[in-house]
């Protein structure tokens, strides 16, 4: 049962992502069921739920790393179909940060950041490098620019991955469990960068279990289970007064410690 989304705050802008009755199967396994989701510009959404609930699959559908079988996904007014041109247009506007960073190990940090601007946006190399340095400063690792990813710690790698996405100047950022593969002492440095992004008004969808982060920056928290959206609410109400028994159980499990 889906509770109504909280009325959007006045500051939020037009719709960026609209998902309408999305259904997806892996073979005969029904992973996403009747998902409806509307994301406005500047919204910061945290998606949580037990593993296997379909939350990662959902955000991977948004930039078509996974294809869906029913329903529509519209990003920035463009509907996602098989059309590779639309897919590429959308991917260029949607940044993504992965659980396992997925930096290119054969390229330096700087080259990781300039690759897409040069080859996709056709930016001049020098300009791309200036932009990259600006974002590397923003994630606080400009001094690592000429190292290879293998020489950095997990936290540093994830910050490079964020900078790499930002270099494409995306309108939306997707985060797929960005801190799950990190050692505890490195989680804070990555979350700091994400909080900074949120404060600058970036539209964000984060799959994460960092409930502190959700309380601090999200204006909506979505709980998924069994491939469906069970409950969504503003963080305050979501955490203090969960409506659904599943949500209560989940929160009690992860907040126990």
């Amino acid at each position: 049962m889906t509770t109504d989304a909280p009325t959007a705050s006045a500051e939020l802008g037009e719709t960026v992502i609209n998902i309408d009755r999305l259904n997806k199967w892996y073979g005969q396994f029904h992973v996403l069921k009747d998902i409806d989701l509307n994301v406005k510009r500047g919204e910061r959404i945290v998606i949580c739920g037990p593993s296997g609930s379909g939350k990662s699959t959902l955000i991977r559908c948004i930039n078509r790393l996974e294809s869906h079988q029913e329903g529509t996904i519209t990003v920035d007014g463009i509907e996602l179909t098989e059309d590779t041109k639309h897919i590429n247009d959308i991917r260029r506007e949607v940044g993504m940060v992965f659980q396992h960073f997925n930096l290119f190990p054969h390229l330096t940090v700087l080259e990781n950041c300039t690759l897409a601007p040069i080859w996709v946006r056709k930016t001049a190399k020098k300009e791309a490098e200036e932009i990259a340095m600006r974002y590397l400063e923003r994630v606080k690792i400009p001094e690592q620019a000429n190292k290879y990813p293998g020489q950095l710690s997990g936290g540093q790698q994830q910050r490079v991955a964020i900078a790499r996405s930002l270099c494409m100047n995306p309108r939306v950022m997707l985060f797929d469990e960005p801190t799950s593969a990190l050692d505890p002492e490195m989680i804070a440095e990555v979350l700091d960068v994400m909080v900074g992004l949120a404060e600058d008004g970036m539209t964000m969808l984060c799959v994460t279990h960092e409930m502190g982060f959700a309380r601090k920056v999200a204006n909506r928290v979505i709980f998924m289970d069994g491939g469906q959206i069970v409950e969504q609410n503003e963080p305050e109400a979501f955490f203090n007064n969960p409506q659904n028994e599943r949500t209560q159980l989940f929160l009690s499990q992860i907040l126990q410690h």
Partner: peptide
């Protein structure tokens, strides 16, 4: 070359051809 590499390249908007030339081949050759 892990699937994550091509996914990351696609997520950045690199075309299939550029992904193969710039990300997959250099790593596979090693």
């Amino acid at each position: 070359v892990s699937h994550g590499q091509t996914e990351a390249a696609h997520a950045l908007g690199l075309s299939r051809k550029d992904t193969v030339n710039l990300v997959v081949i250099p790593q596979a050759l090693r």
